[in-house]
């Protein structure tokens, strides 16, 4: 369980990115964090694993106060928090397998990681995860040889390789096309359901957030302005978070996208049967 209490972040420039943000995420819950650009979504999830140092407030993961940890303890805490990034953030010149195995860096001593001699169970786990995300054939390819959707799958496998107790997901679909976006979101949410893994997903696509998250937290200028089930995201709430916009039209377009995709799937199935 993650609990964030009165979290505030003021950058050196004096910009207040977060103000008094509090919420708790129980085991197995998938939270969609929405809000306009610059609302503090990225800062918030980076405060959880302290890639960004919070100014005030506490972050607790299963009763471990992350905000008070020293460098060594912080590294041990970070290995239990998987993170998935917007532009995949794979190390491009390393192979897919090395990228996935890098999820174990917090667990193995330097010489083992340097010589790439990871323990057998770590390697087995990596192969299993690559199979889970559908990339077992690509293990020895260089990460920059993959497409966007494939790279994000590697990113997911890397995060899961850490044996995380929490997933932080930063705009996983921002550089993907609509169809791949949905596939990636579906994969992340499925995996969370399988292992009861809680996740915070930063996402600016409201429709995707509503479709896949159990709960939505809306940020506006660094403050929580909405916190509730995905169904509670009414026009009025969206307008409060993002300002005036034609929400009905946007939803309709997304629904059409999905209908087209479903149709395509049916067609493909028919084709397969015909063959």
């Amino acid at each position: 369980m993650l609990s964030v209490d009165k979290l505030t972040k003021v950058y050196k420039t004096g910009d207040k990115a977060l103000t008094d943000v509090s919420f708790t995420v129980p085991k197995g819950q998938v939270v969609g964090l929405i809000g306009p650009s610059g609302a503090g979504k990225s800062t918030l999830i980076r405060c959880v694993n302290r890639l960004v140092e919070p100014t005030e407030g506490t972050v607790r993961l299963n009763d471990l106060d992350i905000t008070r940890l020293r460098a060594g303890e912080l590294r041990r805490a970070r290995r239990r928090i998987g993170m998935i990034f917007q532009e995949y953030a794979l190390v491009e010149r390393l192979t897919v397998m090395e990228n996935v195995l890098s999820g174990r860096l917090g667990y193995v001593p330097f010489w083992r990681s340097f010589t790439r001699r990871f323990p057998g169970e770590d390697i087995a786990k990596a192969f299993r995860l690559l199979d889970r995300v559908g990339l077992s054939a690509h293990a020895d390819k260089r990460a920059d040889a993959l497409s966007g959707g494939q790279r994000q799958r590697v990113g997911i496998a890397r995060a899961l390789e850490q044996d995380p107790e929490l997933l932080l997901v930063d705009e996983p679909t921002a550089s993907l096309d609509p169809k791949t976006s949905r596939q990636i979101m579906r994969l992340i949410v499925e995996i969370c359901r399988e292992s009861g893994l809680p996740a915070i997903i930063n996402i600016h696509d409201v429709v995707l957030a509503q479709q896949f998250a159990d709960r939505i937290i809306g940020l506006q200028a660094g403050r929580v302005v909405f916190d509730g089930p995905a169904t509670g995201l009414t026009e009025a709430v969206l307008t409060q978070i993002y300002g005036e916009e034609d929400w009905t039209a946007m939803r309709q377009a997304a629904a059409e996208d999905e209908a087209a995709e479903a149709e395509q799937r049916d067609e493909a199935k028919k084709m397969m049967r015909a063959l």
Partner: peptide, 12 residues
């Protein structure tokens, strides 16, 4: 971002 991702895994 690549360094950030490696840092996030708890790497030394």
């Amino acid at each position: 971002s690549q360094a950030e991702a490696i840092r996030a895994t708890g790497a030394s």
